[in-house]
Design a binder for these strands. Sequence first.
DNA 1: TTTT
DNA 2: TTTT
Lengths: 157, 157, 157, 157
Amino acid sequence: MLNRVILIGRLTKDPELRYTPAGVAVTQFSLAVDRNFKDQNGEREADFINIVTWRQLAETCANYLRKGRLTAVEGRIQTRNYDNNEGKRVYVTEVVADNVRFLESNKSEGGNSNSGGFNREEGSGGSYGKGNNSRGNQDPFSDDGKPIDISDDDLPF
Amino acid sequence: MLNRVILIGRLTKDPELRYTPAGVAVTQFSLAVDRNFKDQNGEREADFINIVTWRQLAETCANYLRKGRLTAVEGRIQTRNYDNNEGKRVYVTEVVADNVRFLESNKSEGGNSNSGGFNREEGSGGSYGKGNNSRGNQDPFSDDGKPIDISDDDLPF
Amino acid sequence: MLNRVILIGRLTKDPELRYTPAGVAVTQFSLAVDRNFKDQNGEREADFINIVTWRQLAETCANYLRKGRLTAVEGRIQTRNYDNNEGKRVYVTEVVADNVRFLESNKSEGGNSNSGGFNREEGSGGSYGKGNNSRGNQDPFSDDGKPIDISDDDLPF
Amino acid sequence: MLNRVILIGRLTKDPELRYTPAGVAVTQFSLAVDRNFKDQNGEREADFINIVTWRQLAETCANYLRKGRLTAVEGRIQTRNYDNNEGKRVYVTEVVADNVRFLESNKSEGGNSNSGGFNREEGSGGSYGKGNNSRGNQDPFSDDGKPIDISDDDLPF
DNA sequence: TTTT
DNA sequence: TTTT
């Protein structure tokens, strides 16, 4: 009835962009979120949380997120299951993000050091990145460092 | 680095209380959280989210939560893995709760209809239910309907 | 950039429904949220948090929330200021809700005891209560106790 | 009963550290949190949210936060009131933080560009900065960029 | 009284 | 299968 998650962590790999048969963009990545306490060996462990984004948000994430980037994610926990190729039921728990904040920009790729790219699924506007699945050829921070609005709230999911 | 989850849903079963070899109480249950949208068949689905609580909070949950109860949970997403009996690695994603709110009391068991039992892990106080693992013999709402404080923040986890 | 609030508390009064000159419904109410700790006198205090809702969500809240009801609110903190009639600037901090959950139904008004009315602002659908500002004459729980979808995400605010 | 806030924004000024008569450190600052939408003039406005931190967290914030820094805050909404010098009751709504994340380090002051200082109130440990109210003479990121644990959960507030 |  |  109420289901809200907020995470800040770092991508463990570059994000993976796919398209559904109907042509809907889906991007998945894993966020390493350090724990606030140390284990019995004095080591700080992390939780590795799988994130899914859809549509324009998926494309923006695929274009601008990279391994190691500090990132904030807001969304909901989703559980689902499917039968794998061995006919065994697999249970999945993941976070479906509707708001992703880029807390570090593409420094290593020549971008400026501005923080603060922002992307939220919304009912209306924003066509940024729509249908754009070639990565890395645009930098949302390159002109003015202002947030970009993208849109994706009328999801059928 | 930041990892926060808030859920409201209903228990799919009675909670299960266990003890670690060191005698620490652990309670697990699953929360059915209805989605805010309907699927392609017009059906409202739910996410089934596994919750873990430790120590006094575990015992209070075991004592007072029951299948079907509307419950609020606050905590963090935890991922872990272990090798099962077939030597296969199993990945688990669950919510470790540090705050559980009983939004419905034990009406069917003769309690009053007060809402609002409250339990949070804290550094200091609260001895309620400590070492008490016999279920259902006390009703935290039976006297005055006021929240109970329990304590469990100095976890080694 | 990221601004999320989740509250569970009880209405301090019946909600107040108004309309802007342009005819947009606005409902305000105050939520008493008990603190998780006691003050120096052993008393549990509460925070009294002002909530604002717009459009259909405003009308549903006006119709079904009442003083004393246990309610969950999800939204964002908003700050604004205006000059009062004495020409003095007044600063306001409040929560703009986009999701309100009715955790207790209208028992005293003859409704059943179902918990779980749900209302979220969304980009698309839902016409429930649209233009309906007569209070209390309908019970969203009276038929099947299922959540109602309402819609209000394309706000100009 | 449940009261949780998560914010990401930028400090509007340097934080202000005070001490209560009993010697407890209190730091206040205001966070500018850009809204996710534009107003009728196409301008993106911000909410200016007052934050309060206590004890070691207060001292760490005073030492390392500065105007303009991108910062994540987790806490609860608090309301309180007092009578001002004109005998008029003043109502205050603010966020009491129990977790503050420094998303940008002290680049301009010669620090490295590491992100990720972390501070949470906890029941037990951490003596970092205890009684230290001289600012800026230590950089938590200067050695290894690892989070610092501080402690403040046994608050009487 | 407001940040990038 | 994991990030700084």
